[in-house]
Design a binder for these strands. Structure first.
Length: 831
DNA sequence: GGATCCCGCCATGGG
DNA sequence: CCCATGGCGGGATCC
């Protein structure tokens, strides 16, 4: 089963299945090679149960190996915890304190605090801690998600967990507090923070009084704190005090000063400190350069900032995310009304992503007003990576970006293959004609029932992925609107979404309306009543039919024999009068109906109702459209009239058929095509149970049957053409419709929006060591292929040489970063 | 050749 | 008058 699944997910050429095969728990169990890479992949691709068993067969666990694996699973929080738990619970291997720290951090990043504290407790049971380091991690995580209060509490209660509050733990905590990244909301948070900082100062004082002597680190953090609370003079005094006390002032101190004064506009003092630093023979760090660049940007001196940046590069400093952020920020004076080249934003977005803050990157993306397709490409790639790493974005972002992708020529194929490659996150609805409906299966609180529906047709050349027809359209239409939250339907909207002309929509809504699914509200507006409204609508039709039959009848108690009158039996006065124009019938025409006489009616709707009545009022089980037309036209003598009616009936029948009201068969005797009434039995049962409705409704209309399956294969075939290797098998597992709540721990898909604790954090430049731990070559080449080409394709047009260089640099960084990610997490895209 | 139904012109009438 | 609506049939396409 494992093999089967994997095979489906991966293109034929992949080596994965073979490797997994190697690991499969069959007798005799082969000795597992201690290759972190393979194990990582194994963990990522194996379901929990199987994994548990498989890991049992691996014996040679070392702390190093475990740590390596945990680091590699850094961006796969749920999997990392799963892995950790298996090791912790099922194996006798004793996990290290560091491993626990990793796990705790992972839980924290997923905001799964319950797990977090469980882990802390377990750590205590095993006499492994928690250590100050553990608490540094926890407090930082709390702070970084805005729960500073909680962080302070946690820090204060350290000793209760058996962890002494020593100076270095205080340093860590202080650092955490000072680094709460809320620059944008600085002012608002300033007061709160000032209180915290002061509280921290108090704690420090106490600690000093208790005989602990602060180190330079503490001083630096404090200094930073003064700047954070905008007490520049205090900072300056503090700095002087440090010098007076003969502190070995280091690069961090200087940088803090340069930065602190610089960003507050005190460029002169910043420069002074910088000069002093050079004079003292202290070598500037990247951070120092960043500070300077930022200061220059602040002065609207972008050119110099860029020069400074280049200077940095020349001197061998490696820019980090801050550098880019600073430069990019420098290009916009106003964060909200930023007119920077959108591509510039890509830099910052990219870097957020590298730092593990993909969600944040996408947020930045959101801020950009107009998005062109190029930018969507970037966003789409982010999205792909993000989900590939196991984090689902919030609904809004997801819909926004994926919709955009599907509407963008170049990205459609990528978006599709992506969705296919991550079928466990989505459900692709079959038989949607030009439409593809994609539902996010997971229902974690943050993204709710996300779903996406978009056009899959090619707007440019007009060629759609699928033959469109009324039946397809209806499927699409129903998919589009048969869901929670749909109240009204705009005709233009429907037409646009379905990619068809307005005229087609009228046909659909008219039929749907006559069976109660829709109700016309105003011009251009229909109200979605839902399938639940069908039974009563049909009942009404039935009553109506019988009533007319019995009371209005001139004596024919049996409907069957009066072919030439059926029409009126099953229609209202309006319809009669219309027909009267064609088939004058003095006996039936009420004179008072003249106000309708010349009015066109929704004959399609009426025809639908009458057609339905044929089934529900009479015991007509099966009827050919020809016959139906004749019946409904009374004495269908006029052949041209009949022809026209038959045409309409085809339209209607198609709609009803795609709703499973009727199905097309052949008459048992004549072998002529005919339609059989399927009725609403199944549907009304479903509707009887309101709970079942939710789940089953979609099943009823989305997952059955053959007719649509055939059509669906057309989609796939077309996609195959586009995607090259898209496998039909990949579509299969998605047909099942399973509610996910119970299977998926909510934390599993929580978005990780925060950076790592400093000690773990690695940006694009850092993890070279990680990336060199090999992976199969073809895998690497394969998965990076797409991205490299994209990176080169979407090179922005910078007019400024410096920026161009910057971008080139960025592209390089990105490439190497991508290769690394690809190794850790082979993307199952089709290239 | 008959079944099917896509397509869109254009009449109509509501607003 | 505008334009939303939808009747209607030519004729392409499928079988």
């Amino acid at each position: 089963m494992l093999l089967l699944k994997t095979t489906k997910l991966l293109p034929k050429t992949s080596l994965k299945p073979r490797r997994l095969h190697h690991f499969s728990p069959r007798p005799p169990p082969p000795p597992p090679p201690p290759d972190p890479n393979s194990i990582t992949n194994l963990i990522l691709e194996t379901d929990q149960q199987t994994l548990s068993r498989t890991l049992h067969n691996l014996t040679e666990w070392t702390p190093d190996l475990v740590h390596t694996l945990l680091i590699r699973l850094w961006n796969h929080g749920p999997k990392a915890l799963e892995f950790f738990n298996i090791l912790d619970c099922r194996l006798t291997y004793p996990l290290s304190a560091t491993a626990f720290d990793y796990a705790i951090d992972t839980a924290a990043r997923m905001h799964d605090y319950k797990t977090l504290w469980t882990l802390v407790a377990r750590m205590g049971e095993r006499k492994l801690g928690p250590s100050p380091r553990t608490f540094a991690i926890i407090t930082e995580r709390y702070v970084s998600c805005g729960k500073s209060d909680k962080a302070v509490k946690v820090f204060s209660s350290m000793h209760k967990h058996g962890c002494p509050q020593d100076l270095s733990s205080f340093d860590s905590f202080l650092d955490v507090l000072c680094n709460a990244k809320r620059v944008e909301m600085a002012y608002k948070l300033l007061k709160i923070f000032r209180g915290k900082f002061m509280a921290a100062l108090e704690i420090l004082k106490e600690m000093v009084e208790r005989g602990l002597s602060p180190t330079l680190i503490t001083y630096n953090i404090m200094l930073n704190g003064f700047f954070r609370v905008e007490q520049l003079n205090e900072a300056w005094k503090f700095f002087l005090e440090m010098k007076r006390r003969k502190c070995e002032i280091d690069v961090v101190t200087y940088t803090t000063m340069v930065h602190g004064f610089g960003v507050k506009g005190e460029v002169e003092r910043a420069r002074k400190v910088f000069d002093e630093m050079i004079g003292a023979g202290v070598l500037p760090s990247v951070a120092t350069s960043n500070a300077l660049v930022q200061v220059l940007c602040k002065k609207d001196d972008l050119e110099n900032a860029i020069l400074m940046f280049n200077e940095m590069l020349r001197k061998g400093y490696i820019p980090n995310v801050t550098t880019y952020t600073v430069i990019v920020r420098g290009r916009c004076n106003d964060d909200n009304r930023c007119e920077a080249n959108v591509q510039t934003y890509n830099v910052i977005i990219r870097y957020y992503c590298d730092a593990g803050e993909i969600e944040k990157g996408l947020e930045v993306f959101e801020k950009i007003g107009e998005k062109k397709s190029d930018d969507l490409l970037v966003a789409g790639k982010l999205l792909v990576e993000m989900i590939g790493r196991g984090f689902l974005p919030r609904k809004f972002i997801f819909n926004h970006v994926l919709n955009g992708l599907l509407l963008t020529d170049g990205m459609r194929v990528i978006a599709f293959s992506f969705v296919q490659g991550h079928s466990h996150h989505f459900r692709l609805f079959p038989a949607l004609g030009r439409m593809v409906r994609i539902e996010i299966l997971d229902k974690a609180p943050n993204f709710g029932n996300s779903w996406v529906i978009e056009q899959a047709c090619e707007p440019s050349d007009g060629r759609s992925l699928v033959d469109s027809g009324i039946a397809e359209l209806v499927s699409s239409f129903l998919s589009l609107y048969d869901r929670e939250g749909v109240e009204t339907i705009g005709l233009d909207d429907a037409a646009a979404r379905l990619g068809v002309e307005r005229r087609r929509i009228y046909d659909i809504v008219n039929v749907l309306e006559s069976v109660g699914v829709l109700a016309r509200k105003a011009k251009n507006r229909y109200t979605w009543k839902g399938f639940g409204a069908i039974p009563s609508a049909l009942q009404t039709l039935k009553d109506e039919g019988f009533k007319n039959n019995c009371s209005g009848d001139d004596g024919h108690s049996s409907a069957r024999n009066s072919d030439d009158e059926e029409d009126d039996r099953y229609s209202n006065a309006t319809y009669s009068s219309q027909n009267d124009k064609q088939n004058p019938d003095p006996g039936q025409k009420p004179p008072g109906s003249s106000k309708f006489d010349n009015r066109k009616e929704k004959s399609l709707a009426l025809l639908t109702q009458n057609f339905v009545k044929l089934f529900i009022c009479m015991d007509m089980d099966m009827i050919s459209l020809d016959d139906a037309a004749k019946i409904l036209l009374k004495n269908g003598k006029d052949p041209s009239m009949t022809r026209s009616k038959v045409r309409r009936l085809y339209d209607i029948a198609n709609v009803l058929a795609s709703m499973k009201f009727i199905e097309k068969t052949h008459h048992p005797d004549t072998r002529k095509p005919a339609f059989r009434w399927l009725g609403i039995k199944g549907k009304s049962e479903i509707c009887a149970d309101p709970m079942a409705l939710h789940v089953s409704k979609k099943r009823a209309f989305g997952t059955e049957l053959t007719n649509t399956m055939i059509k669906r294969s057309k989609v796939i075939t077309k996609l195959d053409g586009d995607l090259g290797q898209a496998s039909k098998a990949q579509f299969q597992p998605q047909i099942k419709c399973e509610p996910m709540e119970d299977e998926v721990p909510r934390s599993k898909f929580q978005v990780d929006a925060k950076t790592g604790v400093k000690s773990y954090q690695f940006g694009p430049f850092a993890p070279v060591n990680v990336s060199t731990l090999g992976v199969s070559e073809d895998n690497k080449a394969k998965s990076s292929h797409n991205w490299e080409s994209l990176a080169t394709t979407y090179r922005p047009q910078y007019h400024n040489q410096a920026l161009r260089d910057l971008f080139d640099h960025y592209v390089e960084a990105w490439k190497s970063w991508y290769v690394e990610v690809a190794e850790k997490n082979p993307v199952k895209l089709i290239s």
